[in-house]
Amino acid sequence: MNLYHYFEKEKGPFVNLSELPLDEAQKIQDNLQNEGKVFATRRNPQYLSRRRYLEQLTRKMFIEKGGLPIRQTPYYMVVEECLWLNTWYKTADHIRIPISEFDLKTLSFTYGDTFPTFSPKVTDHLEFRKTVYTYDEILKVINKYGLPQNDWKEPIFAQPAYVEVQVWSDWPIAQYRSQE
Score class of each variant (00 low, 15 high):
M1A: 09
N2F: 06
L3V: 01
Y4N: 01
E8M: 02
E10D: 15
K11S: 15
G12A: 09
P13S: 12
V15Y: 09
V15K: 15
N16K: 06
L17H: 12
L17S: 06
P21R: 06
P21M: 11
P21H: 13
L22N: 05
E24G: 11
K27S: 15
I28E: 13
I28A: 06
D30L: 10
D30Y: 10
N31P: 03
L32F: 15
L32D: 05
Q33A: 13
G36P: 02
V38S: 11
A40M: 15
T41E: 14
R42A: 12
R42I: 02
R42H: 12
R42P: 09
R43G: 05
P45F: 07
Q46P: 07
Q46T: 12
Y47F: 13
L48Y: 03
L48N: 04
S49H: 10
R51T: 01
Q56V: 04
L57P: 01
R59Y: 07
R59K: 09
K60I: 04
K60D: 06
E64M: 14
K65P: 08
G66C: 08
P69V: 07
R71N: 08
Q72V: 09
T73G: 06
Y75W: 12
Y76N: 02
V78S: 01
V79H: 00
E81K: 14
L83D: 15
W84V: 14
W84I: 10
W84N: 07
L85G: 07
W88M: 12
Y89S: 04
K90I: 12
T91R: 09
D93M: 03
D93T: 03
H94R: 14
I95L: 11
R96Q: 10
E101S: 09
E101Y: 11
E101M: 03
F102D: 02
F102S: 00
L104Q: 09
K105F: 04
K105W: 01
K105Y: 13
L107A: 06
G112R: 02
D113N: 13
T114W: 03
F115N: 03
F115A: 07
P120S: 09
T123V: 14
D124M: 04
D124T: 10
D124Y: 10
L126P: 00
L126Y: 05
L126A: 06
F128Q: 01
R129V: 13
Y133Q: 00
T134D: 04
T134R: 09
D136S: 15
E137S: 12
E137R: 06
V141A: 13
V141N: 08
I142F: 00
I142C: 03
K144E: 13
Y145L: 06
Q149M: 04
D151Y: 10
D151E: 09
P155T: 10
I156N: 05
A158E: 07
P160Q: 05
Y162D: 01
E164W: 02
E164F: 03
V165C: 05
Q166D: 04
S169F: 00
S169G: 04
S169R: 02
D170N: 11
D170E: 15
W171D: 13
P172T: 06
P172Q: 03
Q175G: 01
Q175R: 11
Y176V: 00
R177L: 00
E180R: 12
